[in-house]
Amino acid sequence: MSASLAAPPSAASRDEDMARSLGRRRRVTDRVVRVLCWLAAGVGLFFLASILVTLVMLGYKGLSFGVFTHFTLPPGSGGGLLNAIVGSLIQTALGTLIGTPIGLMVGTYLSEYAAGSKLGDVIRFVSDILLSAPSILIGLFVYQILVNPFNGFSGWAGAVALAVIVIPIVVRTTEDMLRLIPTALREAAVALGAPKWKSIVFICYRAALDGIMTGVLLAVARIAGETAPLLFTSLGNLNWSLDMSRPMSSLPVTIYQYAGSAYEDWVQLAWVGALIITAGVLALNIVARVALRKRT
């Protein structure tokens, strides 16, 4: 190479130089892009880490047994989050209980009955839209149909709003999971003379159970942290109440009220609540993912 530098430039070596510089430019571009991609991945991880670190740092110091055993109290009197936690558990559980069977049946319809049909395509399309629709609008919708015309804010309205969010999530996973069931299983059921519904319920559901459960877990994780729809439906309640027909407390709404307040101990409790809810939601997600991974 040094010999070619010393020699008078020939056409061939000029080409070679050009090729070399072009190659260098391509390599440099490639390296720059690679570095940027690593950085992009770093940025994503950084934000997750920053959020988790902030939650732990600000939430940990307020975390005590009392948070789980005391009701919410006026500022300065050392209250906890018990009614918020219980309210969240109740509404999340009811929302899941109402939404899951509907979502399951819709997913079943899409996978087992509507393959290739126009109606099935439309329902799948609409369900996917509902999956990403702004949750605040679902809150407004339930406010208009359940809160406004009847006797006001209630735990039931909150549960219904959450159920509407659950449905499309369960539809998606149910349909996907049922489609993974080998047709031989269904054929075996048919060959034994089982009616279709029996082959679906006792063969397909059973075979797809862990996948369907994963979808339900993801739905629970999603609604457990939902705030906006509850603002218009169960409203929140700083008093202890298990009456589903009255306004009901929930962890996200309490966090929202407390975080925006001017009282130091309320803000502290908001961070504790945020830590609890995030830990719960992420744990559910990880469990769901592990379950799904085992399957595929």
């Binding site: 997750l48 705030t227 908001a270 992420l282």
Partner: peptide, 24 residues
């Protein structure tokens, strides 16, 4: 792990992003 971490970012409730945004 990186793929899962990015997906977990999507699972963090929206109100948490708000509080983090306000505090940090």
């Amino acid at each position: 792990p990186v793929g899962t971490a990015v997906e977990l970012l999507a699972a963090v409730p929206s109100i948490i992003f708000g509080m983090w945004g306000f505090a940090v």
